[in-house]
Design a protein around this nucleic acid. Structure first.
Lengths: 140, 140
DNA sequence: CGGAATCCAAGATGATACTG
DNA sequence: CAGTATCATCTTGGATTCCG
């Protein structure tokens, strides 16, 4: 009574997709979430917020190279997805606090695992890269 | 030895960046690796290859919506980074096999953890999103 | 089959100026 | 301070064509 049961023709590729996961489906909503989380600045915002609450300008200072526009945009999409809690205190000058939601913390931990791995293995990776470029020069 | 030792002028912001992590530094090479791995198609390629060796056209079929160009480009960057092994058999018609390297397997596992989490929590995420959009409509 | 090359549309990003 | 708006740019992505 589910998708699997209704598969008769064209069944092979559909079954494969289901087994591996929905992200592989062209129009699965998880693709969008994944892109928000894995976006250039989304990753870094999540990592920084793992350290606790931050204000807008704090985030901007910690994340090297991000523009106001992109930071704002990134924060909005992550807030929409329910990963970030935005609290605006009604004072002047404005004071806005960004925090991870419980759900946001769960993704952030996984993202952090990835970035940490990359940082720690960067020497290995860069070494591998140099070998490759050397190969392409010598195997002609 | 490392960057820390060479810090003298402009040390404040640099030290801050190092403490939290190198990815936060504007020009750290890890940023580039991270972008390859987290790219729209890079994530999906890694997840699929976790299931073992695949040929070009197999990847293309499994990853819904990817074009030949982007798949090719993605595979090249991941190969450059040392995450993917590309073996071209000298036969006609061409036969090319893509496999994760041991290092690639390590990142892929972390990526897979992330995508799996998103897939499994998709209902929660989408529910949170609807509440937000409802909020923005009612708090005007 | 597995690409490379080209061209073009679309989206992401950035610099700047402005506002409550 | 924390954005928004606008415009310019730079990168991505896709469709098409051609090749060994």
């Amino acid at each position: 009574m589910n998708d699997i049961a209704s598969v008769s023709s064209e069944s092979r590729s559909l079954l494969e997709r289901i087994r591996v996961g929905e992200v592989l489906a062209r129009d699965c909503p998880s693709r969008e979430i994944l892109n928000h989380v894995c976006s250039r600045w989304g990753v870094l915002v999540l990592v920084v917020l793992l350290d606790g609450m931050h204000r807008f300008s704090e985030l901007r200072r910690k994340i090297g190279g991000v523009s106001e526009k992109m930071l704002s945009q990134t924060l909005q999409s992550l807030e929409q997805d329910g990963f970030i809690d935005r609290r605006a205190l009604p004072v002047v000058p404005p004071h806005v606090e960004y925090t991870l939601t419980p759900m946001g913390r769960e993704v952030a931990l996984r993202i952090d695992g990835l970035t940490t791995w990359i940082e720690q293995n960067l020497p290995r990776i860069l070494a591998a890269r140099e070998n490759r470029t050397a190969d392409t020069l010598s195997d002609s």
